[in-house]
Amino acid sequence: MSRQRMSPLARNEERLGYLFISPWILGLLIFTLFPLVATFLISFTDWDIYNPPKWVGLKNYFNLFTDKLFFQSLKVTLLYSLFSIPLTLAGGLILALLLNANIRFIHLFRTIFYIPSVITGVAVAMLWIWIFNAHYGLLNYFLSWFGIEGPKWLEDPKWILPTYVLISLWKVGGNAVLFLGGLQNIPQHLYEAARMDGANRWQIFWKITLPLLTPTLFFLLLMGIIDSFKIFTTAYMINDGGGGPDNAGLFYMLYLYQKAFVSLDMGYASAMAWIGGGISLILAIVVYRTQSKWVYYEADVGKKGSDQHGDTRA
């Protein structure tokens, strides 16, 4: 459609279209594009907001690479993801398989398991601190039934990360519900055909169910990586804004927050933001790039080689 040949009516429609989407365009410019560029520029300065920024070149980046706490926060975040993401994915999948049954009260069960995904925030973080309390906490009481003397959880640097991973497991219901959506989108005739061919439950799971759930798996993996760099509320509450004993609970976002909003070191924090954002983006791209190797989309079931969803397979 070239400009000259557009009818007045079409031109009017176009003008209205732009008018209606203009709030988002403005938002994109003000709250996404401008900050993206600005973060990059600020990362080369020394700036406390109040005094004029000083250009320092790559100094912030050099400092980052000698900052033990920076590497500590990176280690905490990545280690947490390494355990929490696979466990919550596997847990969610198993729970979804259980919840896919056609039994009475199944909706009630689904509702219950989803509660932890909605009810979050400061109050829940406090509740966890209480439950993981080394002396009077519910968990250690529970362990004492089995004659186990529970660890000191949040007071012990060795146990802080496992505690976070355990807490993340409480939310598997969120993943389960998404897997459940995927499960129920699997056409019944595939199962019937497989049964006709004499496949057992185990084979059906590995050859049909799991491959057809890979889009959900892919999506959750992607979001899991991005989200682990955003963990803040719980980390802040549990460690009272600090890093906990031996900084074992210093999540990336928490350290970034301290640098930006406690020390007002905007340049340093911006460099951190770029590196953190870059790492999660690179991980996300790796997952995205490899998806053609392990993710099945519905269209692939019927005909091979469709290039829907930007799939670049030949």
Partner: peptide, 28 residues
């Protein structure tokens, strides 16, 4: 409404969801 660049803009919009928050937080 039909307008030039509609599909591209829509794709951009979906893609912005993947931008990690921390990268835009400080200038904001």
């Amino acid at each position: 409404f039909r307008f030039r660049g509609r599909e591209v803009l829509f794709m951009i919009m979906l893609a912005t969801q993947l931008i990690p928050e921390q990268v835009t937080m400080i200038p904001t």
